[in-house]
Design a protein around this nucleic acid. Structure first.
Lengths: 126, 126
DNA sequence: TAATTTTACTTTCAAAAAGCAAGTATAGCA
DNA sequence: TGCTATACTTGCTTTTTGAAAGTAAAATTA
């Protein structure tokens, strides 16, 4: 069945009013920023995210996308004319994470040996 | 007893060569960047980190500090003249995370309602 | 149009990680 | 010498993760 009882977990409580802590409550985990990375790189579909080399489990991907939708970081739109499929795109709030992602990428490239950017930087530069 | 058998977990395997993914392997969790935030703000001692408003559990703090030491993001130094206690400070690799932290802070301040910087920005500005 | 495949998830469950409370070792002080 | 603070470590319970299998609707193929 498509939709069952989806338990709305209690309103996520903040650990502190610190902007860093609140930001980490939203994307402080091993996967969320990788999904946002993919979105920045132009991916829009569930299967595209699932196909990324890190191999995010589909249930984690599903859960993270729900959270990103709830946090107004991504939005759900139709995937092209006539298609009934849905695509994910970044909202302004999500796009505002690009500087964060860029800095993390640059830090990784500088300090973590053997890392490399596989995709063109173009989308990140937009 | 001070030191027991400390099981060295297997060499942390990378999920991909992506610099973002590798960076998240290092600090992609709910606590690590908060410890680095505290270090940037001038805190140096175990108890100082533990006293932060988010209330990090001490075993998590201990484990994260070990990982940060192993990752060469913090180093262990004497806490003042004569003291036999130890303090933690950021290495150059750790200091290089300041732009990341700044961007996360700014994103939080802009997009997460009710967040506020409790400590002076001075150390972040250095 | 019926059967098959793809898409987009959800469910299940074992394993790992998180979090709390209590314990332990060392150092400094009275 | 005992007391207290620091800096962790150890158990134990709860929560989260992650792999695999299941499900339903849409798209494709026969």
């Amino acid at each position: 069945m498509g939709k069952r009882i989806t338990k709305k977990s209690a309103p996520p409580e903040r650990r502190s009013p610190c902007p860093v802590a609140c930001a980490l409550d939203v994307f402080g985990d091993r996967w969320t920023l990788l999904i946002i990375r993919d979105l920045v790189l132009g991916k829009t579909r569930f299967k595209d995210f699932a196909a990324s080399p890190e191999g995010i489990p589909t249930n984690v991907l599903s859960e993270r996308l729900s959270r990103l939708l709830a946090a107004d970081i991504v939005s759900h739109v139709s995937a092209g004319e006539g298609s009934k499929h849905l695509a994910y795109i970044l909202t302004p709030k999500g796009n505002a994470l690009m500087p964060v992602l860029k800095n993390i990428r640059d830090w990784g490239l500088t300090w973590e040996k053997g890392t490399q950017v596989l995709m063109a930087k173009v989308p990140l530069a937009r």
